[in-house]
Amino acid sequence: MNLNIYLGMLRQAENTLADSFRQVAEGHGAEPDVHFLCRTLAAQCDGHGELLGPVVQRYGENSSDNEPERLHAQGLATTRNGPVGLLRDLQDLYLLASFVDVTWTMVKQAGSALRDNELLAVVEKCDAETATQLRWLQTRMKQAAPQALVAAR
């Protein structure tokens, strides 16, 4: 059974995403919607990590898999400045959230095969929120892109 590899990866990815949301919130305080929503969404990611806790306890968490470096997504180390910087930071968040999203999907597949209702209930709640995070990022980027790419100085 290798599910523990994916559970470890997922918990770490949610952690990374939470940290990155916080990073963007702090780096873009002059964009109040980004600032406040990124804080809210960071807390959502924290919550996902907590919900994963009991499942991880049952299956164990393997953080010493064969190629962790290649699967683990890197978080944002710093944020950028200006309208294009905001766009690129949001796009980085989008990539991280996509990684989380597809990992949830794989964990759901395994949960279905295992007929693990507890795991599936966790997936249902968390993956729906991750999907909304992605939709918000896309909504906000689509709004920002024309001004950043065409009109900004």
């Binding site: 919607d33 929503l37 809210t40 969404l41 909304t132 995070q133 939709r135 918000w136 896309q138 909504t139």
Partner: peptide
């Protein structure tokens, strides 16, 4: 929209 974030439903 999603009422928490403002994400469009599409």
């Amino acid at each position: 929209h999603d009422l928490l974030t403002g994400a469009t439903v599409g």
